[in-house]
């Protein structure tokens, strides 16, 4: 790890991070304020107007009547994946491939810092930015819930849900980071590092729509992530927490090895 580089990377990344945080906070406030404990049926009625496949695709089908499951269904099933996913695509590409593509990596490597040190610094920034994003999001969620509906949020399952979301986004960031480390140009880095997570996301939506396409669930990491199961306590720690973490570690480990060994066009 190199503190000087970390500072510079942070300075160039904080704006994007803040924008994504702001969008997500906005949605979180809207969704929590939409919850009406006395009239959950009216929302259900609203959903019935929309095509049932679409509602199922976005994971809104089995939304329970509690505030916690309401947030899990409306926010964590869709928005809490989609926005961080875009953040990961943008940031992952910037952290390595953009430096190689533009040539500024030559300056970083012309200092007495090994490639491993440089890339570990970038990876550290990436993972911490995601952790920080969800720390703020989950704390804000508690504050907002308490101010609108004191005492209704089940804190423990809610925090577990945030942990699981963080880990599945870790996995997404690992995919982006890996292709960013592997390719010389931002074009390829974005095509695969962005394309694969987006494909996973789409597969997951389609798989949720109905039994006909349920098999697509085998081809996406998001099958490991089921917010409503986590809220209800009916989930396996292995597949929801441990597996995403292992995939993440493998992807980041692979990124470091690939970047250290390959020829750079600088």
């Amino acid at each position: 790890m190199n503190k000087t580089l970390l500072k510079v990377t942070t300075r160039s990344g904080w704006l994007v991070w803040t924008i994504f945080l702001a969008i997500m906070l906005m949605y979180k406030v809207i969704i929590i304020s939409m919850f009406d404990p006395d009239d959950i049926e009216s929302i259900m009625a609203m959903l019935e107007v929309m095509p049932s496949e679409l509602v199922a695709g976005m994971g809104f089908a089995e939304i329970g009547a509690t505030l916690t499951s309401f947030i899990a269904g409306y926010f964590y099933n869709f928005l809490a994946i989609m926005f961080p996913l875009i953040f990961c695509i943008i940031m992952g590409n910037r952290l390595v491939a953009a430096h190689v593509d533009s040539g500024s990596m030559a300056y970083l490597l012309a200092t007495p810092n090994s490639r491993i040190k440089i890339i570990v610094t970038q990876a550290f920034f990436f993972l911490s930015s995601i952790v920080l994003l969800f720390v703020v999001i989950s704390l804000a969620g508690i504050l907002i819930s308490e101010s609108f509906f004191p005492g209704l949020l089940e804190i423990k399952p809610y925090l577990m849900l945030n942990l699981a979301t963080t880990l599945i986004i870790f996995t997404v960031s690992g995919i982006c980071f890996f292709f960013s480390s592997l390719f010389n140009t931002t074009g390829y880095s974005l095509a695969l590092g962005g394309g694969i997570p987006v494909l996973f996301f789409v597969f997951n939506m389609v798989a949720n729509m109905g039994d006909e396409f349920a098999w697509l669930g085998y081809f996406t990491v998001f099958s490991l992530f089921n917010p409503l199961d986590i809220i209800s306590g009916d989930f396996s720690i292995l597949s929801s927490l441990v597996l995403p973490l292992i995939i993440t570690l493998l992807l980041y480990g692979g990124s470091i090895i690939v970047f250290d060994r390959r020829s750079l066009p600088l």
Binding site: T4, V8, G103, S104, A106, A110, T111, P112, S114, R115
Partner: peptide
């Protein structure tokens, strides 16, 4: 590579720095 860099003064053929930095910030960064 990393061990010998401080004994070398390197000028790349193409100038691609961190475009958002000022000259003095970049020099300080290096």
């Amino acid at each position: 590579a990393a061990e010998i860099q401080n004994t070398i003064g390197y000028l790349p053929e193409e100038m691609s720095f961190f475009p958002g930095m000022t000259g003095s910030k970049f020099l300080k960064f290096m």
